[in-house]
């Protein structure tokens, strides 16, 4: 490969003129190379080769990969853009989860629910734990689908306080689940007060471990482990002012 260190175009002529001149050079050389007279005998030989290949006949040979020079179709483009979208969403999701965990570990030691002005607001709606436990699967019962994750929710709540002003982070699945569980973004502080208050007051380890064991087994709305959520229910009066 030759180096172009001492090319004269470096001294001041504009790139545009240079490019134009080079393009003209190329066109002229290309034209000159193509302008040579065509040998009739060579053409006859080629056509004869074509004729004998036809005469040999047989089945149409398979098209190999190198023989396919069709232009890229719309379908190819769709497949490619789909793959790009998939990779991008996976990356963004990973970043969002990582940011949750980072925020969580940062807040974990200094968890102080009192720092937020809204944390101590009494719950606006009646606590869901007191509603009859026999309700079949309706949307409001969703937060109780996984009672064993109280600890997780508390962790998410603490992280939420930390990160709630960063709009993009709130789009992640974990946040949306938290918001949905709380029944709306406005309700998150109220909802969280129950969990963070409980976590700060006493470690509900039995509830956490039992709940995790049972909570992973399915989407059932009502189950005996429901009772293990009681520590959070008890914690509620302590958080109310």
């Amino acid at each position: 490969m030759s180096t172009d260190r001492n090319t004269p175009e470096a001294d001041g002529t504009t790139d545009l003129d240079d490019a134009w001149a080079l393009e003209r050079t190329a066109e002229r050389i290309g034209e000159a190379l193509r302008r040579r007279p065509v040998d009739d005998a060579a053409e006859q030989a080629a056509v004869a080769a074509f004729r004998s290949a036809r005469a040999a006949g047989g089945r149409a040979p398979r098209t190999r990969r190198g023989d396919d020079w069709r232009p890229r179709t719309q379908r190819h483009r769709w497949v490619r853009s789909g793959a790009v979208a998939l990779v991008t969403s996976a990356l963004l999701g990973g970043i969002a989860f990582a940011s949750i965990r980072v925020a969580d570990t940062q807040r974990h030691d200094t968890a102080d629910p009192g720092t937020s002005h809204s944390t101590h607001r009494p719950p606006a709606d009646p606590p869901r734990e007191q509603s009859p436990p026999a309700g079949p699967g309706t949307a409001p019962t969703e937060p109780r689908q996984r009672p064993g994750t109280a600890k997780d929710v508390a962790a998410h709540c603490r992280a939420y306080e930390h990160i709630k002003d960063q709009g993009h982070a709130l789009k992640s699945t974990a946040w949306q689940r938290l918001v949905r569980a709380a029944g709306g973004e406005q309700q998150v502080p109220v909802y969280c007060a129950r969990f963070t208050g409980a976590a700060a007051e006493a470690t509900p380890s039995p509830a956490g471990t039992n709940g995790n064991k049972n909570g992973n087994s399915g989407q059932g709305q009502v189950r005996p482990t429901q009772r293990h959520a009681e520590p959070t229910a008890k914690a509620k009066p302590s958080t109310g002012s």
Binding site: A46, A49, D67, W69, R70, P71
Partner: peptide, 23 residues
Amino acid sequence: IAAAAWREIARELPRFRGDGRGF
């Protein structure tokens, strides 16, 4: 070289897929 190439082109033409530009 061109003559040899054209013999192959004539033989393999049924395999080709594409338009003039691709050709």
